[in-house]
Amino acid sequence: MSNGLKKRIVKEIKVDLDKCIGCRACEMACSGFHAVPKFSSTNPARSRIRVIIEDRKDVYVPVRAGDYAQAECNCRNSYVINGKEYSECSFCTVSCSTRDLFKDPDSGLPLKCDMCADDPTLPEPMCVQVCCCDALTYVEREEEGENEVGPRGEIEVGLESLVNRFGIDKVVDLVSQLSKTK
């Protein structure tokens, strides 16, 4: 490929807030699917998708769990859409320290949507399968992007956490010391 870009498949769940009826079937299907064995239990608190509901304000926002963030945002926006006010948090997919959303209720560990990765691959993630009113729809599209970086190895993840904890200088010093002695 001359431009150095290659095609990749982007998986997306489109959310149409106007169509959500607030039934929370997506939470049931998600928590059931991720139980071990599958569907042996349900528990919306373990679901990687949650419908944020404020029924007297007509707020119904299905949100999927994204990456974990260590710290809270230092500023937040609120948005008015069609006369309804939404806090940025209502859309935010991050599992963060300021709310109990997307944390396993027993371990406290962050939960993350994996698009129901399974073998064989599901035609659609479970939440989409049970959302008959089409508030959630599944879309796959091709996108050109830079070559994907391969999965990070154990060493890289481990080093990064050391850097986070002790600072880059200390880690560099230690590595150069070690390289001399070994």
Partner: peptide
């Protein structure tokens, strides 16, 4: 409430429940 509710025969139950939606 944030606890699990368990079912006895998960595979069989899911097979008939999911198409019901």
């Amino acid at each position: 409430g944030t606890k699990d509710v368990n079912v006895a025969q998960p595979k069989e139950l899911a097979e008939i429940s999911i198409p019901m939606y």
